[in-house]
Amino acid sequence: MTLFWQHFRAQRNGLFIWLAASVVTTISVASAARSMEQSDLMSKLGQAAPPALQALMGTLPGLSPVDGFIQAKMGTGMALILPVYACLLAMSAITREVDRSTADFLLTLPVDRTRLLLDRWGVMAANLAILTLSVWVALVAGLKASQVIGSFGGYFWMLAQDWLLAVTIGSLTLLVSLWIDDYSLGVKAALAGTGTLYVIDLGMRVAGISKWGRSFNPFTYVDAARTVMDGHLPWGDAAVLAVASGLSLWLAVQAFGRKQIYS
């Protein structure tokens, strides 16, 4: 576990910053939920919008105003925030080591490359899980402090789905990062790619394109409103993300085993 804990400690400061920002934001959102409970203004505004926009605005029929508000702000928001954090973590795994030449130090120790990559992936998944769980705890605490009753279990699964999406995007980023030795360039490329996929998915949903037509895009397999409504993960979509993540990780292990570290 030496490699895992060494990298976990290296990411600790970043995790604290992300935790602080996310928890403060979550508590702010939770404290605003009470006003949504007492107002139907948003639902009136959203009734004429297409379902994808209704989901964004939190006005989908079948959801309580609070659930609609929470899934719109937290579910959809975290579906972008967590993948952004995943991109940074994935780029830190190998590319940053190569960029600052510490890969020379690391890879001339008797470390197994497969183990190293799996540990780095594990740190990414763990950091994302800590952030996700903290957001859920802050959300529940914030809502309870505001005396608002929501679908707490549904919110958990909604955030779990966002975590799974982030792990998938992180795994894809980790795979791609093995061909990029410049950390700064890699981060920009990963964020641009993730942002583009998010916008494409949003645009295709608003345009009413079927799920099959959007199947190439990991964001397709996240539906915060549906998950809150059902109160559990959509297992089929979760399985697709898990398989994509596993496949990316397997390909990354193969590629890293062959990667040459230039000075």
Partner: peptide, 20 residues
């Protein structure tokens, strides 16, 4: 290679340690 690195001490031309 992993096994052989156990018995090798390597000093690179530029110190490439974790500076943080």
């Amino acid at each position: 290679n992993r096994e052989l690195r156990r018995g090798v001490g390597y000093l690179p031309s530029d110190p490439a340690l974790y500076d943080f």
